[in-house]
Design a protein around this nucleic acid. Structure first.
Length: 372
RNA sequence: GCGAUUGUGGUGUAAUGGCAGCAUGAAAGUCUGUGGCACUUUAGGCGAGAGUUCGAUUCUCUCCUAUCGCC
């Protein structure tokens, strides 16, 4: 399922294989919450070299509903994406004021923002939904504390996350027995603990004990100091068995991703590259470029002169700036395409650097360009 | 030519005899496990002149501007 093929220090590259699908790690998953990456077609994703995306079970449960997706043949068929489909549980939506109502030991009460209908989400229901959606990798329903929460609140979130992880695992095992072999779904456990080593340790021990197919480090990138984030990853990574994939949820920037890779992380996702693209912050080989800056108004050059993507081969900064300002689909598509291409390429370079045992130099070079 | 109405950031609009507000646009920044939802900071204005008043963007007068009507 997961085979490490090269190492450079703690950094590693491997192959994650699920059924007929496989992807080399480390890789980055764009956010496709509602079964599509915003402004980007599946053909674009394949052209960019994206091997996995992450959809959101709760969002898809609201619309169109997992039953419909199941009838079409699962999320892969539904999206026409041949890569690895990951689903997030929806635990993260506990911070969405529009849909979250309350949470208890039993589960989470959400509301459908369109109808106002209340939805009681339990770990068991969430497992069923993710299985119906038919993702290759499901995530446990977790309880994510914010950086601003007190240590006591974070401790409580760790407790609840463990409780739910146990129930997810049990239900998932039960549901898997009925699945055909080629449709087996992996389940990842999620660790919490904020920036507190003792809570990170407790969470890691609890979750690892449950024996998941992979492990996610959650609850980071929420405003904590960068050093604390790296410490939490480094600390929790030690508890995870070497042969299991490690997924750092919600991260992030080029610098953060490379730092985490150097600590042995294999998978990433973040809305940052796509959201930033829409809002005019673009990745380039020379660092961030804010396309809205007036100096690009009449700039004929591509976003990045060293980029080979079709956007950079064909379109000027002036054109993309104009269309982003107009909030047109064209502008958003071109900017999103480029940012994902940049990140996809960065991951490819990172894998090659690990294979050549030159990852540390590579990381330093990029982090010098991206200091935040 | 005469009469009426009008004039507030680039644009569109409030309020007021005592610190001129809002929206949008502009300049720069933020964005991390849905969102095309956003957020932060900065710059920018009372058509001109005179008068009344302690004090006028506000009241009065003249001029200018624009719009409408009349000859």
């Amino acid at each position: 399922m997961f085979k490490i093929i090269a190492r450079d220090g703690k950094a590693r590259t491997g192959v994650l294989k699920i059924g007929k699908k496989k992807a080399e790690t480390p890789f980055f998953m764009p956010v496709s919450s509602n079964s599509a990456v915003r402004f980007i077609s599946t053909e674009d994703l394949e052209e960019i070299g994206i091997k996995a995306t992450i959809s959101n079970a709760f969002i898809l449960h609201l619309r169109p509903g997992e039953k419909i997706i199941r009838k079409i043949g699962g999320i892969g068929k539904f999206m026409n994406f041949s890569g690895i489909n990951v689903t997030d549980s929806g635990g993260f939506q506990m911070y969405s004021k529009e849909i979250f109502i309350s949470s208890s030991n039993k589960g989470v009460i959400f509301k459908n923002p369109a109808s106002g209908e209340k939805i009681f989400m339990t770990p068991e229901k969430d497992m069923k939904i993710q299985l119906d959606i038919g993702s290759e990798i499901a995530m446990c329903l977790d309880s994510m504390p914010l950086f601003s929460h007190s240590k006591k609140e974070i401790e409580e979130a760790v407790r609840k996350t463990t409780l739910w992880a146990g129930r997810c695992k049990k239900e998932h095992d039960k549901l898997q027995k009925k699945q055909q072999k080629e449709n087996k779904q992996l389940l990842f456990g999620i660790m919490q603990g904020g920036i507190y080593p003792d809570l990170r340790e407790k969470s890691a021990e609890d979750i690892v004990k449950l024996n998941f197919d992979g492990y996610s480090i959650g609850g980071l990138g929420l405003g904590e100091p960068r050093e604390k984030q790296y410490q939490a990853v480094e600390f929790q990574k030690k508890f995870i068995p070497e042969n299991k994939p490690v997924y750092l949820m919600g991260i992030g920037t080029p610098s953060e991703i490379l730092e985490a890779i150097s600590l042995g992380v294999d998978m990433f996702d973040s809305r940052l590259p796509t959201q930033n693209a829409r809002r005019g912050t673009l990745f380039t080989s020379k660092g961030k470029l804010r396309i809205f800056n007036s100096r690009y108004k009449t700039d004929k050059k591509p976003i990045d002169e060293n980029c080979g993507c079709f956007v950079c081969r064909n379109y000027s900064r002036a054109f993309i700036r104009h269309h982003l300002k107009e909030q047109s689909g064209t502008g958003r598509r071109l900017a999103t395409y480029h940012n994902l291409y940049y990140l996809s390429n960065l991951m490819k370079d990172a894998r090659n650097a690990i294979k050549k045992k030159k990852f540390s130099e590579f990381k330093k070079k990029i982090q010098k360009i991206y200091q935040d």
